[in-house]
C-alpha cells in the first residue's frame, strides 16, 4: 500500500478514537454537573412523586454507563435526543444554528486565511523594514483587544457613524446572499481581525525558517526575484506548519465565536449553547459539546493530512 494512504488511514482511525474519548469526557463532565434536571424542569414546588416520575421517565435513575451507551447509540443513529426545556428535537434545532455558524465562519475564513498568508509573505519580503513592522504592530494590536471591544468599536463607526452595515446580525431564509453578507459584515470583520495575527505570524515564522535553507540560496543565485523565491521555493516547504495554525484558527472560528455571536445577537451555535447551559439543559449541552469536538478534531485531522500529503518524501517514496 502507498505509505501516504496508510498514514492517512492511521490518522483517520486515531481521529475517530479521539472523538470517542471526547464523547466520554463530555458525558462524564455533564453528568457530574451539580443540580437536578428534573428539579430544574418542574421548579421548586414540585412534589417528590412528580420528581421521581420524571426522573424515571428521563432515565436519570439508570447507572451512568448505561445512560452513556444509550446516548451514544442515539448519536450514532443521528438522534441527539430532545431538549429538556422545550421538548424539541435537538438535531433539528441545531441544524439551522450550525448552518448559521458555519456561514459566518466560512466567510471569515475566506477573507482571513488568504489575507493572513499574503501579509505573512509580505512581512518576510520586507523583513525588519517598515512594512513588516507595521503588519506586526497592527495584527498584534487587534489580537490584543478583546473581541467584544473590537465589535463595539466597529459597531460605533461602521453601523452608527457611517451607517454602512447593520449593528445586529439578524438573518432569515428569505434574505438573498448579498443581504445576508451585509448583515454579517461587522462580525466577519471582527473575527478576521481576531484570527489574522496568529496565522500571519506563523506564516512569517515558518517561511523565515525555510529561508535559511541552502536551496533558497540556490534560488537567489539563479537570479530569481525575492517574491518569486518566497512564493515558489519557500512557501511549498512551509505549508505544514502554516496549515496547522490555519486549521486551529478555523476551529476557533466555529467553536469560539460565542462572544461575537452574543454581541451581535447572531442565531448561531454559540448563543444556542450559552442559552441552554444557563437552563441546565444537559442533552443540548452534550450535543453541542460533541459537535464542537467533532469540528475541532476534524479540522486538525485535515491539517495532519495536508502535512502528510505536502511532504514529497512521503508522496513520492524512493
Amino acid at each position: 500500500m502507498h505509505p501516504v494512504i496508510k498514514l492517512v488511514a492511521q490518522r483517520l482511525a486515531l481521529g475517530l478514537l479521539l472523538l470517542l474519548a471526547a464523547s466520554v469526557l463530555i458525558f462524564a463532565g455533564t453528568t457530574m454537573l451539580p443540580g437536578d434536571v428534573a428539579q430544574q424542569i418542574l421548579g421548586q414546588g414540585a412534589t417528590p412523586t412528580a420528581l421521581a416520575n420524571l426522573r424515571a421517565e428521563l432515565g436519570l435513575n439508570d447507572p451512568p454507563v448505561t445512560r452513556y451507551f444509550n446516548w451514544l447509540g442515539g448519536v450514532l443513529q443521528g438522534d441527539l435526543g430532545t431538549a429538556l426545556t422545550n421538548g424539541r428535537d435537538i438535531a433539528e434545532s441545531i441544524g439551522g444554528r450550525l448552518k448559521n455558524t458555519m456561514f459566518l465562519a466560512f466567510w471569515a475564513a475566506i477573507i482571513s486565511i488568504p489575507l493572513a498568508i499574503f501579509l505573512g509573505l509580505l512581512a518576510v519580503r520586507y523583513k525588519d523594514k517598515w512594512p513588516d513592522k507595521l503588519i506586526s504592530a497592527v495584527t498584534l494590536t487587534t489580537i490584543s483587544i478583546p473581541e467584544f471591544m473590537i465589535g463595539y468599536i466597529l459597531v460605533y463607526w461602521l453601523a452608527i457613524k457611517f451607517r454602512w452595515f447593520p449593528s445586529v446580525a439578524i438573518m432569515n431564509d428569505s434574505m438573498s446572499l448579498l443581504e445576508k453578507l451585509n448583515a454579517i459584515a461587522i462580525p466577519v470583520i471582527v473575527l478576521t481581525l481576531v484570527v489574522l495575527a496568529h496565522m500571519m505570524r506563523m506564516t512569517r515564522a515558518a517561511i523565515l525558517n525555510v529561508m535559511q535553507s541552502a536551496y533558497i540560496e540556490t534560488a537567489e543565485l539563479k537570479g530569481l526575484r525575492m517574491l518569486k523565491i518566497i512564493r515558489t521555493h519557500a512557501f511549498p516547504n512551509a505549508v505544514a506548519p502554516i496549515v496547522n495554525v490555519v486549521m486551529l484558527n478555523m476551529a476557533y472560528l466555529v467553536v469560539g465565536v460565542v462572544v461575537v455571536e452574543v454581541v451581535f445577537a447572531y442565531p448561531g451555535m454559540g448563543q444556542y449553547l450559552v442559552d441552554h447551559v444557563s437552563k441546565r439543559d444537559v442533552p443540548v449541552v452534550q450535543a453541542c459539546g460533541l459537535i464542537f469536538a467533532a469540528v475541532y478534531i476534524g479540522l486538525n485531522l485535515i491539517a495532519d493530512i495536508v502535512s502528510i500529503v505536502s511532504n514529497p518524501r512521503l508522496r513520492h517514496p524512493k
Partner: peptide, 19 residues
Amino acid sequence: RGAEVTYVSQSAAASFNPA
C-alpha cells in the same frame, strides 16, 4: 546570477528544493 555566472554547492542534497 544564473545567466552569466552559476554556482555548484558542496551539498547538492541541501541545495535542491525538496518539494
